[in-house]
Design a protein around this nucleic acid. Structure first.
Lengths: 189, 189
DNA sequence: CGCGGGTTTGATGATGCTCAAGCCCGGTGG
DNA sequence: CCACCGGGCTTGAGCATCATCAAACCCGCG
């Protein structure tokens, strides 16, 4: 739980009372490898902070192909924001890649928290801003750079990805097939 | 200015005092076709609400190719959020496609506004959330669907695009070249 | 009238996909 | 303890999509 508070205070300051109010709204949840936190079609009732482990979100398109939207290691957040906020059925699946420990907060408790600790509104705004900016960059790179370069950049920025995430998910995150990634990896060095 | 307030109250309620405080922080700015609001390398000092006209943001990659990031008509917002919030030099250009009327708010005035009218924090959080979600969908579609289908969907959702935005920018927004878009348009009907 | 931006057309090639097959290896059950 | 899965990864052949380069076209506007 301290880990969560550290994550929040890296963006906004908290008094100990505020920290207390935050802590009591989150609940711990253990998710085994390959198990779902969210299934497409369900309503996404929680936002998750990854305390330990590794989690991915993905969609399944009309042809039945998976597309990894997000990869979240420790100290990152994951959710289907659209469903969480609109209360519409989700189009995303969220699944553990490793046995993971999550801290969850529900929609209702987040509403409460936002009114009790207005700073949290700011915190989440900044969190979402960063996610938005990085998604725009990801989009732009996917238009301007071939997959080989995006792969190299991804691994350099995140070396433990290779140890912890199967290549099929890395390929999907990059928007290519496992076969293409395999061929990319074979080239050069 | 009423247009701006309408846009805000479509998401959060405002008292007339709050509306007043908001109005006085924005300034009107006319931007001629082909003129820049922001140049890459500069710091993005304002967020813009498009009151009339049409504006685009784009990057220029290492090879000198432009990539349209955003297209904003009336009642939409545009900025380089990354630069605006971090005060780092921008990587984006923002340019008018049509003669446009913008309402601008600077970083400092927005800070003030956020503290005077805390609802604005909420408003912008929701605005950014929506932008984030739609960018994620755009990314996923660009991985899962060929350009021809994305083009069709874009035009159906936004028919006046064809009247108002040159095809080169539409192509770029879709992540393809003008030549490819031309060929897509030639096929089927 | 001619310039120039936007669009089209054609030829060729790169990137990445599909389908099919095989390999490697860790886990499970007999 | 071994045999046999089965998931993850690789390899190959052929193909779709889209890019590149070069040229021509169209048309509004100075």
């Amino acid at each position: 739980m301290q880990q969560l508070l550290d994550n929040i205070t890296s963006i906004v300051d908290l008094t100990s009372q505020e920290a207390e109010k935050i802590s009591e709204k989150f609940r711990t949840f253990f998710l085994k490898r390959k198990k779902d936190l969210l299934r497409g079609g369900d309503i996404c009732k929680d936002i998750a902070f990854v305390s330990q482990g590794c989690v991915r979100s993905y969609t399944i398109d009309e042809n039945g192909n998976e597309h990894v939207i997000q990869l979240a290691f420790e100290n990152h957040w994951i959710s289907d924001l659209y469903s969480f906020l609109s209360l519409e059925p989700s189009t995303l699946f969220i699944e553990a890649i490793e046995d993971s420990k999550l801290l969850l907060i529900s929609n209702e408790l987040l509403e409460q928290l936002n009114s009790e600790v207005p700073k949290m509104e700011r915190f989440f705004r900044i969190l979402i801003q960063r996610a938005y900016v990085s998604t725009l960059q990801r989009l732009e790179k996917s238009f301007s750079e071939p997959a080989a370069i995006r792969y190299k950049a991804l691994i350099e920025k995140n070396p433990d990805l290779l140890q912890r995430v199967p290549l099929i998910y890395i390929a999907s995150y990059l928007g290519i097939t496992p076969e293409s990634l395999s061929r990319i990896r074979k080239q050069r060095h």
